[in-house]
Design a protein around this nucleic acid. Structure first.
Lengths: 183, 183
DNA sequence: TGGGTCATGTAACCTGTTACATGATTAG
DNA sequence: CTAATCATGTAACAGGTTACATGACCCA
C-alpha cells in the first residue's frame, strides 16, 4: 500500500489539490513509483473516506475551481506507522518485464537480442538524464531551511537512481560483449 | 502482461503441471518476477480459455492426480509476438516501496534510518546468496546440449541480479556514511 | 484556430495479494 | 506421530491500467 502512503507523505508537507499532487508525484517520486492521474484521484477519495484526509473546494474565477486536500491527525498517524513498520519482503523485490523477456530470448537470434540490449541502454541513459534534471529541483528545495532534511533523503533516492542506471548500462555492455563473442 | 508470458515461456520448454510451474518459477524467475501459487492456477485457467494451452489429467496411484498443461501453436505465436514487441516504458520502470519510505524519512531520527539501511543491506546480502545458489542450477542446465542457449540468457539475468545487489550494497554503505556524517 | 495548462473525474478491466480449504503419501 | 511433499484450487479484496469525458482560459 505505497501509493496511499506516498500521497500522505506529500500532503504532510502541505495541503494540495489532486492536480498538484499528480505533478509533484511525477516530478519527484516517479522514478521509483508510478501512478496514473485517475488512480491518484481514486486514492484521494478512498483516503478521505478512511478519515486520513479532509478536503475543501477553493473557488477561482480565472481558472476552474479546485479541491484542496489536507492531511488529518489520523492520516499523520498512519504515515508514521508506515514509516516505522519494519519492511516486508515485498518492499525489496524487483519486478522486471525486461529481464523476463531476456530470460526467454534464447529462442531468438542473437542479433535481435543485441538490438534489444542497445535499446535498453538508450532507455537507461534517458532515465539517467531525467534524474539529473531533478538535481536542480532538489537544490532549490534544500535552500528552504525547513526542507533541508527532506532534501537529504530525496538526494539519497536520486543517488540510488543514478547508481542503478549506471549499473544497468555497465551490465548491458558486458552482456552485449558476451553475445557478440558467442556469434 | 508478463506472468502469462513467463508461464508460456516455461511451457515452451515442455509440458508441466501447475505445481511444477510454480516450483520452476520460484527457482528461476523469482528474483525478477513474483507470483502466488493461486495466481498461477488462475492464469493457467485463463490461458486455456484463450486457447494458448491445452491440458489433460494424468492419473497417479501413489500421488494425487495432476493436470498437465501443453502450449498450443496459438500460445507459441503469442509468446514469439511478445518477445518481438519493442518494449514499453513500463517494462523498464522500477517500483520500490523501500525508496518511497526512504524519501519520506526526513521526519524520523537519523539513528532509525541508519538501522533501516543496515537492515536493507542484510536483505541484499541474502538475496545475493540466494542468487549464487542458483548458479549450480544454471550449470546443470547448460550441460544439457539443447539448453545451452537458454542457459546463456538465464546466466545474463542472474548476472544482472548480482550486479544489482552489489550496487545496492555499495549505495547503502555510502548512504550510511552520509547520514553518520550528518549527526 | 490550435495546442498547452488548469482541473476533475468515471467505468471497465486486468493483475496481484491474502486467506482459506482439502487430503493422500512418505520420511524421520 | 508429525512434518514435508505432492497437488489443486476458490473467494474476496486491493491495486494498477486504459479509455473516455468535459470545458474554460491563454498564448502564438
Amino acid at each position: 500500500m505505497s501509493l496511499k502512503h506516498g500521497l500522505l507523505g506529500l500532503l504532510s508537507y502541505g495541503r494540495m489539490t489532486g492536480y498538484e499532487l499528480d505533478k509533484t508525484f511525477k516530478d519527484s517520486l516517479n522514478f521509483f513509483w508510478q501512478a496514473q492521474t485517475s488512480q491518484i484521484y481514486r486514492e484521494l477519495n478512498a483516503m478521505e473516506k478512511l478519515g486520513w484526509l479532509t478536503s475543501e473546494i477553493v473557488f477561482q474565477t480565472d481558472k476552474p475551481n479546485k479541491r484542496q486536500y489536507s492531511i488529518t491527525d489520523m492520516g499523520k498517524a498512519e504515515l508514521y506507522k508506515w514509516l516505522d513498520e519494519s519492511s516486508l519482503d515485498s518492499e525489496f523485490q524487483i519486478r522486471s518485464a525486461f529481464l523476463m523477456k531476456l530470460f526467454f530470448s534464447g529462442e531468438r537470434n542473437v542479433d535481435e537480442n543485441i538490438i534489444m540490449l542497445e535499446n535498453y541502454k538508450k532507455r537507461c541513459m534517458e532515465a539517467m538524464e531525467a534524474l539529473e534534471g531533478t538535481d536542480g529541483n532538489i537544490e532549490d528545495y534544500r535552500s528552504c531551511a525547513s526542507s533541508n532534511q527532506q532534501a537529504l533523503y530525496w538526494g539519497l533516492t536520486a543517488a540510488f537512481g543514478k547508481s542503478y542506471f549506471k549499473m544497468c548500462l555497465d551490465w548491458a555492455d558486458s552482456a552485449i560483449k558476451l553475445l557478440e563473442g558467442s556469434l
